[in-house]
């Protein structure tokens, strides 16, 4: 199996890391870049595939040269073998359409220079754009089948098919199983969980972890950077020039006023803690908790 996982560096929106100016605009320079959180599930699916079926796991991203560290993080997460960065001034400021064209071309380039990828994995959506367009559009460019909201997957190597469980409309009562021929694109749902029920798989996992810890330290040696010329892409169809999306304006969402009252109790304040207990008591059920 040769898999490619798409990932993106996004602003770290976690508390303490993210920085906004007075108007509520993101201060990009002051906010660190991290791997898009939803990509974690795509990486887990790629890792499960590598552990179960062997082969090569590649990770691809489009972005500035500084994305190398995001790819390094992805490498140690998925125990990846190869990293691809599509990076070029001409690619900058791309919308999801131009990005999709670029990524699809990168995947085709892998097929030409390495081997034909069997699976491309993508996360559900990015933390900054939140569109959820890039994965499906990339797949449209490739003209492959796409399976979205995937929570579990299984591959039949001899039949060259993939069978997945999909979480339809986020309703756990509605899980459908669908099958597609390879190659295919998989968009993982945040509910995706890898399963390793065979000792052999877990042992492989341990081996991979050891190998990759070393490899990730010198990730540059496994990083291939392609610019638009190497991908044979017309600058008019990528980057800002190739982006039909027009952002007319950005309005910050006003902060909702807090309606709850908070009482701060010091843990050393015994009477205060007693009153907290009294408040909580109606919500406990000692009998039901017994033996737990």
């Amino acid at each position: 199996m040769y898999t490619v996982t798409l990932t993106k560096g996004v602003p770290d929106f976690s508390e303490g890391a993210v920085s906004f100016d007075e108007d509520g605009h993101l201060e990009r320079g002051k906010t660190p870049t991290v791997m898009n959180p939803n990509d974690r599930f795509a990486l887990e699916a790629a890792l499960q595939t590598k552990v179960r079926h062997g082969g090569t796991a590649a990770v691809m991203s489009m972005g500035p040269p500084g994305y190398g560290e995001v790819l390094q993080e992805a490498m140690s997460s998925v125990y990846a073998d190869e990293l691809f960065l599509l990076s070029d001034r001409e690619m900058a400021a791309a919308d999801t359409w131009a990005t999709s064209i670029t990524l699809a071309t990168g995947i085709e380039r892998i097929a030409e220079t390495r081997e034909q990828p069997d699976l491309v994995f993508a996360g559900f959506k990015t933390a900054d754009g939140e569109t959820g367009h890039t994965g499906p559009q990339t797949c449209w460019c490739l003209d492959w089948p796409i399976l979205t909201h995937v929570i579990a997957l299984d591959i039949d190597e001899t039949e060259r098919t993939i069978r997945v469980k999909r979480l339809v409309e986020g309703d756990i009562e509605e899980i459908e199983t669908v099958e597609a021929p390879l190659p295919a694109m998989i968009v993982t749902d945040p509910e995706f969980e890898p399963t390793y029920r065979k000792a052999e798989h877990r042992l492989t996992f341990k081996d991979l972890r050891e190998e990759t810890t070393e490899r990730a330290e010198s990730y540059e040696e496994h990083l291939t950077t392609w610019d638009h010329a190497e991908l044979n892409l017309d600058p008019d169809y990528i980057g800002l020039d190739g982006s039909p999306t027009i952002v007319s304006g950005v309005d910050p969402i006003p902060k909702a006023p807090s309606e709850r009252e908070a009482t701060v109790v010091d843990p050393g304040d015994e009477a205060g803690m007693e009153s907290v207990l009294d408040e909580l008591l109606p919500y406990t059920n000692r009998a039901a908790a017994g033996g737990d």
């Binding site: 887990e44 929570i151 579990a152 299984d154 997945v164 509910e191």
Partner: peptide, 24 residues
């Protein structure tokens, strides 16, 4: 945040509701 998918180091934040992932 690292995508730590180590089966030996499962994180504790598993979903509360049981989702039937089963064997596909």
């Amino acid at each position: 945040m690292a995508a730590n998918t180590d089966p030996e180091e499962k994180t504790a934040d598993a979903p509360a509701e049981a989702i039937d992932r089963g064997e596909v």
